[in-house]
Simulated assay, not measured.
Amino acid sequence: MLAIERRELLLRRLERDRRIVAKEIATELGLSEDSIRRDLRDLAAEGLLTRVYGGAVPASPAVADYAARTQIATASKHRVAATAADLVRPGSTVILDGGTTVLALVQQLPRSLDATFITHSPTVAAALIEHDAEVIVLGGRLFKHSAVTVGAAAAEAANRISADLFLLGVTGIHATAGLTTGDWDEAAMKRTLASRAAETYVLGSAEKIGAASRHPVLALDEITGLILDAPAGDPAADELRRTGVRIVTTG
């Protein structure tokens, strides 16, 4: 089998099974694991998948630039946002992550809501200007790709706060790879924010379910639950359910 044929087969198998186990497919094709790993490295370099221990999973489209992400799965993000908004209680203190799903969430919140919001996203903070709620912005180096602050100053500010709830955005939600994102510093900031909240829920629009990015944020057993927009019988969502993580579905 030619290399291009192997890679086409790997991509078809990834689309069907939502993961590739290098050892299993090497045995199936009568090839060495090294050959399959080389193919996976090449495909990962092209952004067509994300390598994980022992194989690969689908790459998340949510790592695109900020402007492009505003056009991805917009209806799904609004369904997730509407469900997440129900978790925000009057009088509570809530950490809001950055990202387009959180911006959709802000649109769902009553402007008269009595709450305190803490965010490291200037765009999320700006969206809350017309709300009655108190808004606290965590400063630091601006990571322009996601329009959030990161780095030592942002982490130091985050370590001085505490909250009832953190609504966390990631680019990948996978049963084995866990919760992932595309940048190392951003992943570290998300972990710091999660450590400051009593509960952490992850916002999971359709394009993130069953996908993964390069940098781990948290394991599934380190969060309170997932808010997922997935149809009944979705194999990636079913695999997440089998891990035992709490799942809140939209609709």
Score class of each variant (00 low, 15 high):
220 L>F: 02
141 R>W: 06
99 G>Y: 02
40 L>C: 05
205 S>H: 15
51 R>Q: 13
187 A>N: 01
34 D>I: 15
60 S>A: 05
11 L>E: 06
210 G>K: 05
3 A>W: 00
122 P>T: 04
23 K>N: 10
128 L>K: 01
52 V>N: 00
116 T>K: 15
109 L>R: 06
112 S>C: 03
203 L>T: 03
237 A>T: 01
34 D>P: 13
71 Q>V: 00
114 D>W: 00
226 L>S: 10
47 G>Q: 03
188 A>F: 13
190 K>C: 01
209 I>G: 06
160 R>L: 14
136 I>F: 11
243 T>A: 02
31 L>Y: 10
17 D>G: 02
152 A>F: 12
186 E>I: 00
59 A>L: 07
169 G>Y: 08
195 S>P: 08
134 E>I: 00
195 S>G: 13
161 I>G: 00
43 L>Q: 02
23 K>E: 13
67 A>W: 00
251 G>A: 12
136 I>E: 14
181 T>G: 10
76 S>L: 05
86 D>K: 15
110 P>R: 09
118 I>N: 04
6 R>M: 06
213 S>M: 04
185 D>E: 15
73 A>N: 12
64 A>T: 12
24 E>S: 13
92 S>R: 06
35 S>A: 09
115 A>Q: 10
171 T>N: 13
73 A>R: 08
242 R>V: 11
243 T>F: 01
54 G>W: 01
219 A>R: 15
116 T>N: 07
38 R>G: 00
68 A>G: 01
71 Q>T: 13
116 T>I: 09
153 A>M: 15
239 E>G: 06
217 V>Q: 02
152 A>Q: 13
99 G>S: 03
14 L>V: 07
236 A>L: 04
199 E>K: 13
206 A>M: 11
